[in-house]
């Protein structure tokens, strides 16, 4: 025992100060992690950044530097403008609805006396299922003539539902080609995206709700808070602030990344109305082997995601952690 204690004292003549020795040991210990971090995470992004200024394609052994040409393409060609519009629109539709539904479902489930776990399981099913597999189900359901959606809608023809002009028109001219009509395709995909993701948000909100101290509700009741709405405004919503920021960030980033439903159902069409960024990266960078262009779109994509993360840190987090 005494030997163990004295060994470091006698063998450390080179650096007498324990802080220096600790710092060196620390540096050695973290170096594998730092190297892995650089090789696995930072290097690929750096390579993509460099390639985005070239016309590199896989298999060719030389490449030409094209400067900002790839970026100029993105911001001037109409198909890429459509890409940005489709991506942003998809995000703007999906995020608020999916977050709102997640919160609503969590609050309703929490208020249940029995059957909580049943509802949790059911709402969480789409999250666990592979979206690609579920896309096939949706493809059948949304088939213009054979799909259950349009066939069910057709049953309502002749009923008072026809007072709704859209319904009457659809009865006369046929119900929409949900995935084949450029006015409907993106909304339909957004619907599927919401269907798939709100269960995840619900689970996050349920976790957030369990962290709200029960005494706060007691205190509010004593302070004269009578309605559920007031209780929500005074306690639940502010206390869920950190959860909401997290849910918003996660959902936004996931919506930016939507790919599988596009690939399975629309391939970016019709008329590029569902041509979202990740699909564009895949199509240009991998399917058409235009790596330089794909890399440029990737950079733009990373820019968006970065913006969201920074916004989260800067503007919101400071307001919802009450320190």
């Amino acid at each position: 025992m005494s030997e163990i204690l004295t060994t470091p004292l006698t063998s450390s003549r080179r650096s007498a100060r324990p802080e220096a020795r600790q710092a060196r040991a620390g540096a050695i210990l973290v170096s594998p992690a730092v190297i892995l971090l650089i090789v696995i995470l930072i290097l690929p992004v750096a390579v993509a950044f460099v390639l985005s200024f070239s016309d590199y394609t896989l298999g060719r052994d030389r490449l030409t530097w094209v400067g900002f040409e790839n970026y100029a393409d993105i911001f001037t060609r109409s198909s890429y403008r459509k890409m940005i519009v489709a991506t942003v629109l998809y995000v703007v539709i999906t995020v608020p609805v999916s977050v709102g539904l997640g919160l609503g479902a969590a609050l309703l489930i929490r208020s249940l006396k029995i059957g909580q776990s049943l509802y949790k399981t059911v709402y969480f099913l789409p999250v666990m299922a592979s979206l690609l597999a579920m896309a096939i189900v949706w493809e059948f359901a949304l088939h213009p003539t054979l799909g259950i959606v349009n066939r069910t809608l057709a049953l309502g023809c002749g009923s008072p539902l026809e007072l709704w002009p859209w319904y009457a028109r659809s009865c006369a001219d046929g119900f929409p080609l949900w995935l084949g009509d450029r006015d409907y395709a993106l909304w339909t995909l957004a619907f599927i995206g919401i269907w798939q993701s709100f269960g995840f948000n619900m689970v996050l909100y349920l976790a957030g709700l369990t962290a709200v101290p029960r005494d706060l509700y007691g205190a509010a009741e004593m302070d004269g808070v009578r309605s559920g709405w007031e209780r929500f405004r005074l306690i639940t919503w502010p206390m869920l602030g950190p959860t909401t920021v997290f849910v918003l960030t996660i959902t936004t980033i996931r919506s930016f990344q939507v790919f599988d439903t596009i690939e399975a159902l629309t391939h970016g069409g019709p008329a590029k109305s569902t041509y979202v960024m990740i699909y564009a990266i895949y199509e240009k960078g991998i399917a058409q082997n235009l790596v330089g262009l794909g890399a440029a779109i990737t950079m733009l994509f990373l820019g968006f995601v970065m913006l969201i993360s920074v916004a989260q840190r800067r503007f919101v987090e400071r307001k919802v952690h009450y320190q």
Binding site: P213, D215, L216, G218, A219, L234, I235, P238, M239, G241, Y322
Partner: peptide
């Protein structure tokens, strides 16, 4: 007055 004080943190 609650043991945890139950103040509204925000």
């Amino acid at each position: 007055v609650f043991q945890s004080y139950a103040l509204y943190p925000h």
